[in-house]
Design a protein around this nucleic acid. Structure first.
Lengths: 136, 136
DNA sequence: CGATTTTGCTTGATTAATGAAAGGAGTTAA
DNA sequence: TTAACTCCTTTCATTAATCAAGCAAAATCG
């Protein structure tokens, strides 16, 4: 399915997805055309899901990075899910997980005040346990 | 510092970082050249940290997505840190966090066997609590 | 086995994007 | 008022992407 060249392409695109097909081709010893064809195949097969950027959230004002474990009391999760949908400016990821918690929210906030507001709203629907990310 | 156009540019590049500057310019009502200049500025200021791809890890064979809470018994974290360094094929992120745990590992594994091996090695250095990601 | 199709690449021509230079409009400050 | 600066546009030369053949090795199949 995937050969060594494909893995190299994935690695290089992970490092810099705006590289030209010509340059990428030089790295994997192919022409730009052949490289573009391989990349198109990786897109079609779903291995490459998209092209995006790494953003420095702190420079955008989101200085708090939090992990919030969610423990739902009721089996009816809808109110919680629609709450975080309404707050998606702050939600980076929402993982449904096994273990002590039902969900793990990865969030970003511009201040403790906003974090507090978020938690006040959150506590109307679920119990939670808050962890602050100190370092990545 | 950042105006509305910059935020639009960031949003569009998040959705598709391989868009041409010309097309991106059309979306934000600027010429390709002016857009490229703004993007270069966002790079220089560190707001845009890099360009990357979204990869379907399952299609690469990593079918298990795990969150592992780490509780260190000793204050000497070095053995743990060098262990996960040696296992970085499986480690997506390592967050140092506040709360019950000291670290939160986000990992991927191709099978339960490999996960088990990882945990056997891990348990030589720290205590852990395993959560499996069911859905994102 | 041998003919045909498919796959994966290269080359070459065309089209589109990028980069550099020049210049104009608006802002700030001496 | 003038000078310096910012941010944009236009133009043009350069470079890359795309499209269409063409070719050879590998796979498929009667």
């Amino acid at each position: 399915m995937l050969d060594h060249t494909d893995l190299l392409i994935i690695e290089e695109l992970s490092k810099n997805s705006r590289i030209t097909m010509k340059e990428l081709g030089e790295k994997v010893h192919l022409t730009g055309q052949a490289t573009a064809a391989r990349v198109a195949k990786l897109e079609d097969s779903g291995v490459i899901e998209g092209y995006t950027i790494k953003i420095n959230q702190e420079k955008l004002g989101y200085v708090i990075h939090a992990m919030i474990n969610i423990i739902t009391q009721s089996t009816y999760h809808e109110p919680f899910l629609s709450y975080i949908q309404s707050q998606k400016e702050y939600v980076i990821n929402n993982y449904k997980i096994s273990g002590d918690s039902c969900y793990l929210l990865e969030c970003k906030f511009p201040s403790n005040e906003v974090l507090d507001e978020f938690l006040v709203g959150l506590s109307k629907h679920v119990n939670y346990k808050l962890s602050i990310v100190i370092k990545k």
